[in-house]
Each structure stands twice: as structure tokens, then as C-alpha cells.
């Protein structure tokens, strides 16, 4: 469920990749976006071929060998979600991503509609999983210093440094008010 939602958010981001704010500490904004793009692709491939290529377990007969798909009737789903402007504001603020375009909003609403199908699945009595690793033993490390001392290398990644410090803007830059932002984003309107 979680992974799924994140994939949706990412596909939303895909629409307005150019609007992603560059990350403060690392000037290499391009590599950050391309990192997301790669992830996005890997999600798509995952969703398409569920042949469990990398599974070490013998195939479980309860799991179908190929993905099966049954469309869910619209009347089985809850009312389609409407995204009020305030919520868009909040989401943009939380994710530091702008998607206030017609297409961006449509994409988000479509993604939520897609996820609505999960409401049909009966999960009563099923404990949710945190991760596929939850039955693995967590490795514990001994308390001996083995890393660090690479300030020079790290500082080289930063656009701006002073002495041995990274330099960031003061505090959190407050996002512009909605009206200002609409004006700001006019150019990105389709």
C-alpha cells in the first residue's frame, strides 16, 4: 500500500519535474531528479512483470504466475475525492513540489481514484506489513568508529561553503502566498 502510494506521488511529480525545488545542500539538482526518474521506471517494471524473477523461494501455488486484472465497477468505489485548494497548498508545502496546474491536479485526482480500488479489498483480520524485510534479523554493529573524517569530500558536493561549513538559506524559506504563487506559476500553465 505504502509503496504503491509513493509510486503514485512520483508519477504526479513526473508531470512537473522541472518545478522540483533544488535541494538546499546539494547543488546537483539534476542528479536528484534523475534519481527519482530511475526509481519511477523501476516501479513501472515492477508493476508490469510480477514473475518474481528474483525470488529465492519456490513458487507458491497461491500466487498467480502472471498478473491478473479485474476492473472494479465505479459504483463499488467511494465518491471521487475532490482536492480543495487548501489541500493542494498543504501537499505542495509538505512535499516541496509544485503541481498546481490543470494537468497536475487531474493527475493527482486520477491517482487517488486508482487507489480507491483498494477499498474493495477485504483486509479485516489481516495485520498490515511494514516491509518485506520484517522477519529478517536486524544486524547490529559494534560501537567502533570506522567512518567520517571526509569533510573535504562532502563539502565538494555543496554549491556554497564557508570554511568547513555547508551554507544554507536562513531557516525555512516560507512558501509564497497562494495568490503570489499563481502569478509565479502562470508561465507553467498549459
Amino acid at each position: 500500500m505504502l509503496v504503491f502510494c509513493r509510486a503514485v506521488v512520483r508519477s504526479c511529480r513526473g508531470v512537473t519535474l522541472d518545478n522540483i525545488r533544488p535541494f538546499h545542500l546539494f547543488n546537483d539538482g539534476y542528479s536528484v531528479t534523475s534519481f527519482h526518474r530511475r526509481k519511477l521506471q523501476s516501479h513501472i517494471t515492477c508493476n508490469v512483470c510480477v514473475t518474481r524473477l528474483f525470488s529465492s523461494q519456490p513458487h507458491n501455488p497461491k500466487v498467480p504466475k502472471v498478473a491478473t486484472w479485474e476492473p472494479v465497477q465505479d459504483d463499488q468505489l467511494p465518491q471521487p475525492a475532490k482536492i480543495p485548494a487548501d489541500l493542494v497548498d498543504k501537499l505542495e508545502r509538505l512535499a516541496l513540489v509544485d503541481f498546481r496546474t490543470k494537468q497536475g491536479l487531474a493527475c493527482l485526482e486520477k491517482a487517488i481514484r486508482f487507489a480507491d480500488q483498494l477499498h474493495v479489498v477485504d483486509t479485516s483480520g489481516v495485520e498490515p506489513m511494514d516491509s518485506v524485510l520484517e522477519d529478517r534479523v536486524l544486524y547490529l554493529r559494534n560501537d567502533t568508529a570506522k567512518e567520517g573524517d571526509c569533510a573535504e569530500e562532502l563539502l565538494r558536493l555543496s554549491k556554497q561553503t564557508i570554511e568547513e561549513y555547508f551554507v544554507a538559506p536562513p531557516g525555512n524559506i516560507p512558501l509564497p502566498k497562494r495568490e503570489d504563487r499563481t502569478a509565479l506559476l502562470k508561465h507553467s500553465e498549459f
Partner: peptide, 19 residues
């Protein structure tokens, strides 16, 4: 595995994970 120490030169106790 980077060391914990007070008042060391800035960013000298930072691993790739910490960054």
C-alpha cells in the same frame, strides 16, 4: 560508524550516511 565527539572541527565526524 562515524565518531561522536563534542567541539570537533565542523563536518569532520560525518559519514556518507550522515550526509
Amino acid at each position: 560508524g562515524s565518531a561522536v565527539r563534542f567541539s570537533s572541527p565542523p563536518n569532520s565526524l560525518v559519514s556518507f550516511f550522515d550526509a
